[in-house]
Simulated scan of single mutants.
Amino acid sequence: MKAIGFKTSLPIEDQDSFIEFETVKPIPAGHELLVKIEAVSVNPVDFKIRQSAAKETVLETPKIIGWDAVGIVQAVGEKVTLFEVGDPVYYAGDITKQGSNAEYQVVDERIVGRKPKSLSIEEAAAMPLTTLTAWEILFDRIRINPEKDKGKSILIIGGAGGVGSIAIQLAKKLAGLTVIATASRPESIAWCKEQGADFVVNHKNLVEEVRNAGFQYVDFILDFVDTNFYWDIMAELIKPQGHIASITGSAEPVVLNKLKGKSVSFSWELMYTRSMFETDDIQEQHNILNKTADLLDEGVLKHTLKETLIGLTAENLKKAHQKLESGTTIGKIAIKF
């Protein structure tokens, strides 16, 4: 089968930052599905792994990355019960396994959902990773309860990005929160409002902007940009007994003492935790993706696809990564095979 990968971590402009190659089609076992992939989308995790996975070495076998995918089930392992051959599916995969930038992929059925019927393959490919991340950070980490928390305020730092775009929708339409999102360019401000943000504030002067919008403190904060950079700002803006959650990691230790006076909770979210550790509730990702498919088909949620490239080629992956690395993308970029 055809696949796109890399043997060493190179700048995206380098000719060999991605290479096309032939490899053996995988065989599913256990809970695995063999999926013939029809479309993928790209996420910041893709370029971060490309930049770091083979920094000081040359791999013998090219590494295949990419995690968002849509396709058709071609074969199933002996323990599979959730899907059958011929089913259209979508998923965000497992960071410890080979990725989706290939013609075929094996993936655990328990982290796979049925493809939303109302979406094209490229629209559906834009959704899994960001939706799972946003859903988990809101409902599994912060544990927002729509009945108890309806009307409370949430600040979403990085509102126009892939995760921010769907987090705005989930926070507004499912949780009933008052949503404040950050954006600075006219097109990203408009995008956040389209997703349902009640207020859009400029991240360059965040404390003042939030206060000018009428909020002395906010109940919840989601960081989708840079934990350390915004740490003091988040500590200032969070309401006493509020909750901050982040997906961005931290090169420097996070100064949790700054949250003590307000008795503020803090959570990390990593969408791959369930698949990496095969947690007892690993199948919750299957459930979330199916719930999301229903919400998309019902029109409660809308896809966040902004751009589509055509063809599984090294050149298209380079283009997509260049755009992501610029830090100016809005919504999601998909590649239709």
Results as ranks from 00 to 15, higher is better:
V179Q: 14
T178P: 12
Q195N: 08
A92C: 14
G151T: 01
K262S: 12
G164R: 05
F6C: 07
L155H: 09
V218S: 09
I27Y: 09
L309G: 10
E252Q: 15
F83S: 12
E315M: 06
K48L: 13
M271G: 11
D198Q: 03
P186H: 06
R274S: 11
Q241I: 03
E325P: 12
T57I: 11
N202P: 14
K63G: 02
D223N: 07
T23A: 10
P186S: 10
A167H: 05
N205K: 13
V73I: 10
A53K: 06
V24Y: 03
E22W: 01
K323F: 13
I221G: 14
A29D: 04
P253Y: 04
I335M: 08
W135I: 01
E32Q: 07
T328G: 02
K152Q: 09
L317H: 12
T328C: 03
Q15W: 04
P88M: 04
I310L: 15
V218D: 04
P146R: 00
F277I: 03
T131H: 02
L270V: 08
A126G: 06
E284S: 06
D223T: 03
K2W: 01
W231V: 00
N316F: 10
V179R: 14
E109H: 07
N290I: 02
I330Q: 07
I142N: 05
V70F: 00
K36I: 02
L295F: 07
K193F: 01
W135H: 07
I137P: 09
V210T: 06
N228Q: 15
G242A: 12
K152C: 09
R185E: 10
I64E: 05
T308W: 04
T130P: 03
E187G: 14
I49Y: 09
A75F: 06
G159H: 01
F139H: 03
V107I: 15
I4F: 13
D14H: 15
G249L: 03
V85R: 10
D46W: 01
S267T: 13
A197C: 05
V58R: 08
E187F: 06
T227I: 12
E122F: 08
D46S: 04
A134T: 00
V163Y: 12
L138Y: 00
V200E: 05
F21M: 12
P186K: 15
K204D: 12
D140C: 03
Y91G: 13
P28C: 01
I95A: 10
S275I: 14
V264H: 02
T248A: 13
I180E: 05
I247S: 13
Q216M: 14
F139D: 02
I189Q: 04
I156W: 11
A124V: 06
L119R: 04
D297N: 15
Y272N: 03
E194Y: 08
E208V: 05
A171L: 11
E252W: 07
G176R: 02
K318D: 05
G249K: 00
V40D: 03
I154A: 02
G66Y: 01
V85W: 02
V207Y: 05
T182S: 15
L174K: 15
E284A: 07
A134P: 01
L237D: 04
P11D: 06
E194L: 11
A69I: 11
V264Y: 01
V255H: 13
V80N: 04
G86P: 00
E269P: 09
Y230P: 05
